[in-house]
Write a protein that binds this DNA or RNA. Structure first.
Lengths: 194, 194
DNA sequence: TTATTAACCAAGCAAGCGCTTGGTTATTTT
DNA sequence: AAAATAACCAAGCGCTTGCTTGGTTAATAA
């Protein structure tokens, strides 16, 4: 139709692909599924993307980066590291459970990519993890948690992302309550003073 | 070859299927992959199982049940609920990371099954969860943890199963150390006296 | 107005998929 | 020795898959 200035359909494709890849898995999702989800014919997505893997890679990287933007916007100006962690947890659960793309879950489809693409995705994930690691180190520095080693961060991410397998928004538990329970898991019980 | 009394090949098929399903995902694993892994030709697995889905279902249920046997054997005779939880965590991580099947991860492939099969699998998973729930309730009863609601158990399982995505045995961190770190996550800090 | 280009559709191709069918082999039973 | 059975193999069938190719349409540029 119109030339140039319309990456709308490309974005639509990415959003539909992310949703379906998370919902059914990469291998179980056909490019026809994705095309149909945005009202295209079977071959048309390949005008925008060279392969199904490239669709996945783009959905992962752009999904993680836009999630990171939300993370940074949420913690902007927050000084207290404990509050900062709570905000990170809440915002991440929003990316994971409230956005219909749920793009953070896409990292678990990395195995469908080759080594080069996987490295690009890993870099995007490192960017996403950076504010978390910084906050954990601050918490360890003030003695609020005992250590900030990688296991702690990885256990935490596993716990948070695992919610995507059982939590359904609109149920008895709200995302806010869930975020509080998850943060309490990481931070331990409230210290009485200080 | 011999008739009757040899379910060995069937077991071999189930173990290979579980390993490959966890490694590559259900949809990305072909029945030819599974056949080749046990030295069979493409069509031969269908002598033992009617469909690829039935292979998955059997691998899930029998994997969970044999994992449950290990759980119950490990906590047999353990009275203290805190020690009991630590043993459950350590044994589950063994099922998840040290056994080459890693069958607990198969639950995340449930979406490949129809409703009837999924119900059978859910029943097996409930059996697996039962000793955990009992232990958590005991811990809550003595005030060792604040509550034993479903979110706590689900957050915990997410954290434990998530290890399968980043932990590799033989690395710097041992499974024993990982189990301790994970248990500390659930139990919070050590209470100074009783 | 004409030419160009972006964005699609219609159709189909080769490869791979789950699964079936009919035959083969070796063991066990009679 | 003969019959029966369990456990496979060889071959292939129909279908789906990711992707390609050539044409079509409408908007922009010249």
């Amino acid at each position: 139709m119109e030339p140039g200035l319309e990456p709308n359909r490309r974005r639509e494709l990415l959003r539909a692909a992310a949703r379906l890849f998370v919902e059914k898995g990469f291998a179980a999702t056909t490019t026809r599924d994705i095309a149909e989800a945005v009202g295209m014919r079977a071959g048309s997505p390949f005008y925008h993307f060279r392969s199904k893997q490239e669709l996945l890679k783009a959905a992962m990287i752009e999904g993680l980066d836009s999630g990171l933007v939300r993370l940074l916007a949420a913690v902007d100006g927050v000084a207290d590291p404990e509050i900062c962690l709570r905000v990170l947890v809440r915002t991440h659960l929003g990316n994971l459970l409230e956005d219909d793309c749920r793009s953070p879950m896409l990292i678990y489809e990395s195995r469908a990519l080759d080594a080069a693409d996987r490295a690009e995705v890993a870099a995007a994930f490192d960017r996403y993890q950076a504010p978390w690691q910084a906050t954990l180190e601050q918490l360890a520095a003030i003695g609020r948690i005992d250590s900030a080693g990688p296991p702690k961060r990885l256990l935490m991410f596993g716990m948070l992302n695992g919610c995507s397998h059982w939590f359904r928004p609109g149920g008895a538990l709200s995302v806010d309550e869930l975020a509080e329970a998850a943060a309490a898991f990481v931070l331990g019980p409230q210290p009485s003073a200080q």
